[in-house]
Every structure is written in structure tokens, then in C-alpha cells.
Design a binder for these strands. Structure first.
Lengths: 154, 154
DNA sequence: GCTTGCTCCTACAGTGACTGTAGGATGCAT
DNA sequence: ATGCATCCTACAGTCACTGTAGGAGCAAGC
């Protein structure tokens, strides 16, 4: 298995399409990440095509994985900055992750209220005419809801 | 309590700000709903100010409540159309609500995988230096994840 | 050397569901 | 008459991309 101490890695160059295939990130998204500063500006060929190396690949995988885990771009930007300062305390990293976890838990809680309410609504449906529809009745009047489901908000 | 059979309701007119206060929907949002056809174009005063009545208020409450429950605008548009045809079967209403419920359940499932993974990451943190940070390690390598959390996607 | 077909480039518009701002007109109370 | 709240339109901004238009580069086959 490869270690980062291998000294003479040929650092094979990657075109943007190669990088996209290697990471599962779309070409347009890679360019977008560059435009918002999540990815650094790569070297270019004489014809102006982007040339990437192993460091770019690792960084993009980090970004993609953090996005998959739901971190926002600003948080990822900060995480990337932090990971460039290995001597610092990781308290801030912990705080970012903990905050994100708290956000996820809040979203789950809100969605569970929603699930409760929607389940109730769907069960109440007697499959008759629109004029007698309990689902529409409930939508017309929050007073018929069992829970104080707030708004979904994302 | 008011019934819709009250015949001579004075139908007190509402300015857009009154309607906003009565429903908790912001003025700009009411105008936005009008622009996308969720709310009908209201009558206007001679000076061009919008004038709303009880029917508008009920419709806006319906829209707001459906949005709070996470229905998308297109679904709400369809629900509103359906509720104008009280003799039709409510099967389509049921289908829209059931589909939305399924969507909510899927989002919950994905978020729960995320919660698992984030909890694991945060617990693994040994509060040391960035260079030894398990959280950053995990972000750099999906292989360290316990679950196939996909992407969050909303 | 030329064509074919793939890859890549920039620049900009569109998504969803709003929110915010600029700049002006109206309405009402004092 | 003045001041202030409310209202109007029109448009830009949000987030994290995705899609499109229109063009240029590059390798392989003929």
C-alpha cells in the first residue's frame, strides 16, 4: 500500500476528465469548486487545459466526502484551511463537526414530526371524493394537526 | 364558531400587510406566490394596491401549511386545482401525500446514516493537534466510514 | 493531410423558494 | 403641511450546483 513517504512518485498528470473519473465529481463541478476557491487553480498546458496532480486528487476527495456528509462549503473551506496547519489544536474541527451533527439531529427531529403528521393524514384518507378529503381538510387548517410541526426549512 | 354557511359575511377587505399579519406569510412572499401562480391576482384599489378577501386568506393559509409540511410548489399547485373539483376522486391527493411521505422517510433514513457517521467521527476526536485529527482523517477517506452514507442531496 | 469524434475551454443562464434592496408612490394622522 | 408607515415595481442575491452555447484542441484512422 502506498505511503506518502514514497519519494519518487511520478506524480502522473491528470486532465480534468481524468480527475472527474478518479473522484466521481463532475467536470463542471470541479470547475465550480475552483471558481469558489475550494480547489486551487491548477497548472495549464500550453493550450490552456487544466493539469492536476495527486494533491489535487486528494483535496477533491476530501471536499466531495465532506459535501456528501452534508458540510456546507464555508465549513469545508475552514476545514481545509485547518488541515494545512497540523500543529494547531483540532478544537475548531471538533466544533465544526459537532455543530453539523447538531444541525443534522435537528433536521431529523423536524422531519420526524413531519412524518408523524403526514402518516396521520394519509391514514385518515377514506379514498372518497375530493370534497370530503381529510388530507385537504388538514392542509387547510393547521388546527387539525396533532403536532406543532414547524416549517421544514430545507 | 364560524361556518361557511354564514350568508352575509361583510368580507372585510385586507391590504397585503393585513393578509401578511393574518397568515404569518411575509409580504414579499405573498407577492412571490402571486407571481408563480399559487395565489390569484387580487383586485386593486384605484391607486394599484392589492385588495384581498376571505377566500384569499383561506388559500394562503392552505399554501403556507402545505409548504410547512414540506410539499413542493408544484404539488401545492396540483392540490389547489384538485380542491376546486370536489366531485373528483381524491386518489390523486392521496398519491401526492403518500409520495411526499415516502420522500420524507427517505430523507430521514439518509440523515440517520449521516448522524451515525458524524457521531462516530466526533466521538473519535481525541482533542489533540490537527495533524492527528481523526475527523479530518475520516473526511479524507470514505473508507474509514462505517456506513455507506451516500450524499445528502438537499 | 483531412476528417471524425471526443475532450476541453469560457461565459452565462437556470434551478427552488424565497429574501433583500433601490427608488419611488400612496394613505393617514397630526 | 408634514412625517411616517405602507405600498408599488423591478431586479439582484442566496446555495450548490447543472446545463447550454459556441468554439478550440487533440489523437486516431483513412
Amino acid at each position: 500500500m502506498p505511503t506518502k513517504s514514497s519519494p519518487a512518485k511520478p506524480a502522473k498528470d491528470l486532465a480534468i476528465g481524468d480527475l472527474a473519473r478518479a473522484t466521481g465529481v463532475k467536470i463542471t463541478t470541479i470547475r465550480f469548486y475552483e471558481s469558489i476557491g475550494l480547489m486551487p487553480e491548477p497548472a495549464r498546458t500550453a493550450a490552456g487545459r487544466r493539469v492536476y496532480g495527486e494533491a489535487h486528487r486528494r483535496r477533491l476527495i476530501f471536499v466531495r466526502h465532506a459535501r456528501d456528509l452534508g458540510f456546507e462549503v464555508d465549513a469545508i473551506r475552514e476545514l481545509l484551511t485547518l488541515s494545512d496547519r497540523p500543529e494547531q489544536s483540532c478544537a475548531r474541527v471538533d466544533a465544526l463537526a459537532s455543530q453539523h451533527l447538531a444541525d443534522v439531529e435537528e433536521r431529523i427531529a423536524r422531519l420526524e414530526l413531519l412524518r408523524t403528521e403526514l402518516t396521520r393524514m394519509v391514514k385518515a384518507c377514506r379514498h372518497g371524493r375530493v370534497g370530503d378529503c381529510r388530507i385537504l381538510d388538514t392542509l387547510a387548517d393547521h388546527g387539525r394537526c396533532a403536532t406543532e410541526h414547524g416549517a421544514v426549512r430545507d
